[in-house]
Structures are given as structure tokens and as C-alpha cells.
């Protein structure tokens, strides 16, 4: 039995295709990251899983139930932290959790849930007085009620500070250890890589790749860029095509020269120090060193190029290429 499965899932709004032909399989018990920039279609996909919206084509299933045909059965087995939700401003944190416990016919202790999400001290405060992060913790607590088999979390990190995120990761690991499947979306790789077994990347409504986190990180690291700021007193005879012999180095893939800077693209981060010495050997004085980490957007761009040009696909052990 798969935890989550989508098959050719497509949602169109008029001419706009929010997601197109998404095939996704999440196995039971894994922590699965759903990665993509804002507006990529992550929430649309999740909204279909929760039966908030209905697909134009294709189908989705959660624990082998179709959310549209059997929303109640699906919602009884899953815990949801949706995006763009809102709380009852005039109900306290505890009242929210009690509400969730009653809705689930669960036997949880509300205080224990509040303790787990770090709201024990604010249990009797009204949710209207909560900060964004506290509200997010409360909604997460409500999702944990009834020990759901699948947790679906849409951008759980939003509004939560780094410390809080660490707590939440611990919490999600506990849930996974108990046997729950955790499916969560994020636009930030560092949120996903710290915890996920597998990730998939969605961009512009299309599923680009399903991969392990290591593979994704490798391909990001391989695209780091070294930026050297050179002496601000430029040589009148400056040759902008002078690559300072950098291209002779293995793993330097590209060099761009401006009057005061050198951008060096490295396929292997280990080549950076060799590159710096090579530049200094040519007589240029380096006044500042900066490393541009390739962003997720770069990765998305690369993946998109891969899929259109048919270049090497990302390795997908345990997964499948979209």
C-alpha cells in the first residue's frame, strides 16, 4: 500500500495549468520532501490530496482512498497542516486541540500535544493573540492528533524561527519512527535535506525529478561559484578575455572577467583554493573572496534544461525520473 500516489494529475484554471501530469509515489513510512519554488504548484498538488480542489485530469490516492470519492476516510487517516489556513481567533490553543481530538474521536491528552509543539505555556491564550509561528505550531499540533498514518504538511517552516524548525524536525522524526509517513513541501532545500529520505522537485507545475537528498545536494554543490574581487586599480591594458590560466584547472567550468572581478564556476568545490592561488600567481591582487552557493532556482533551471535537452538525468535510486 502506498501512502500517496498521483497519476497524471493535472489542474487547469482556464488557460493556466497549475500542475500538469504529475506522477508521484510516496511509500509508507518515508519522510518525503516536496520541493519547489513558490508558485510551482506544490500547494495545488496538496490541495488535491486534501480534496480542497478537484483535478482537471488524472487521479490521486492517499492510502489507497480517492480523496474526492471518500474525503472522510482520507481525512480520518491523515494529519494536515495546510497553507493559508486560519484559526478561531477567540478560541484558546487548548480549545483548538480539544476540537481536533473530538473531531478525530481520539484519546489524546490535549496538554501533551501542546507540550510536544512547544505551546504548553500558551495553552490558555486565545489563538488570535498568537504569533504566526505559534499559530503554525498549534495547527501542527492539531495535525498530530489521533496518530495519523500520513502527515501532509504544506510549508511547515513558514513563520517559524530556526530553533523552532529544529524542534519541528525532531517532532517529525518521532512521527516517522512511530511509522507515520511524512510528506512536506518547502521552497528551501535546507529544510528538506535535514530530514527527508527522498525529495521530488516541482517547478512550474511539472515534476522534474525524484531523488535522494544526497544526489540533489551533490548537484547543487557542483555548481558553486567563486567570486574574486580584484585590486580596484585596473590595468589600462586589461584583457577581459584573460582567464588567468584558470580554465586549465580541472573542474573549473567557466570563467567570467569584469574590470574588478572574476566569477569562476567550479564543478568541484575542492578546486577553489587552487583557483585562488592560480589568480594570485598571475600578479593580480585578490581583495575579497566570495562563494555564491548555487540556488535552488539554479538547480531548477538545470533540471529543466536536462529534461528538455535530454542531458544526464539526476540519479534516482529508489525513485523514478519524472
Amino acid at each position: 500500500m502506498t501512502a500517496i500516489e498521483t497519476d497524471g494529475l493535472t489542474k487547469r484554471y482556464g488557460d493556466l495549468e497549475a500542475i500538469s501530469d504529475v506522477d508521484l509515489t510516496v511509500e509508507r513510512g518515508e519522510i518525503f520532501g516536496f520541493l519547489g519554488p513558490n508558485g510551482a504548484g506544490k500547494s495545488t498538488t496538496i490541495d488535491v490530496l486534501l480534496d480542497f480542489i478537484r483535478p482537471t485530469a488524472g487521479r490521486a490516492s492517499v492510502l489507497d482512498d480517492d480523496p474526492q470519492e471518500n474525503p472522510r476516510a482520507v481525512r480520518e487517516q491523515i494529519g494536515i497542516l495546510p497553507d493559508e489556513y486560519s484559526l478561531y481567533d477567540r478560541l484558546t490553543g487548548r480549545e483548538h486541540v480539544v476540537f481536533a481530538i473530538e473531531m478525530n474521536d481520539a484519546a489524546d491528552d490535549p496538554d501533551e500535544i501542546l507540550e510536544r509543539v512547544g505551546l504548553a505555556d500558551a495553552a490558555d491564550q486565545r489563538a488570535g493573540d498568537y504569533s504566526k509561528g505559534m499559530g503554525q505550531r498549534l495547527a501542527l499540533g492539531m495535525a498530530l492528533v489521533g496518530d495519523p498514518d500520513v502527515l501532509i504538511l504544506d510549508e511547515p517552516s513558514s513563520g517559524i524561527d530556526p530553533n523552532g524548525m529544529h524542534e519541528i524536525r525532531t517532532l517529525l522524526r518521532e512521527e516517522a519512527d512511530r511509522g507515520a509517513t511524512v510528506f512536506f513541501s518547502s521552497h528551501a532545500l535546507e529544510q528538506v535535506e535535514a530530514i527527508c529520505d527522498r525529495v521530488c522537485v516541482l517547478d512550474d507545475g511539472e515534476l522534474l525529478a525524484v531523488s535522494t537528498v544526497e544526489n540533489l545536494r551533490d548537484s547543487l554543490d557542483s555548481r558553486s561559484v567563486l567570486v574574486l574581487t580584484l585590486d580596484a586599480n585596473p590595468d589600462p591594458d586589461l584583457d577581459l578575455n584573460d582567464d588567468h590560466g584558470l580554465l586549465e584547472l580541472p573542474d573549473v567550468t567557466d570563467v567570467e572577467r569584469t574590470e574588478t572581478a572574476l566569477r569562476i564556476e567550479c564543478a568541484d568545490p575542492g578546486v577553489k583554493s587552487a583557483a585562488i592561488s592560480r589568480v594570485e600567481d598571475t600578479g593580480a591582487s585578490v581583495v575579497d573572496i566570495d562563494v555564491e552557493q548555487a540556488s535552488l532556482e539554479d538547480l531548477f533551471a538545470e533540471l529543466t534544461t536536462d529534461s528538455t535537452e535530454g542531458a544526464d538525468p539526476i540519479e534516482t535510486p529508489g525513485g523514478e525520473r519524472a
Binding site: 486534501l50 474525503p71 494536515i80 495546510p82 486560519s86 473531531m103 474521536d105
Partner: peptide, 15 residues
């Protein structure tokens, strides 16, 4: 409009 429906429908229950 507020999105509270997402909180309510996140719990077992139908529209």
C-alpha cells in the same frame, strides 16, 4: 476567504 475552512476540513469531516 479567511482559510479557516482548511483547518476545519483538515479534520475528519465532510463539506
Amino acid at each position: 476567504v479567511s482559510g479557516r475552512i482548511r483547518l476545519l476540513l483538515g479534520q475528519p469531516g465532510r463539506r
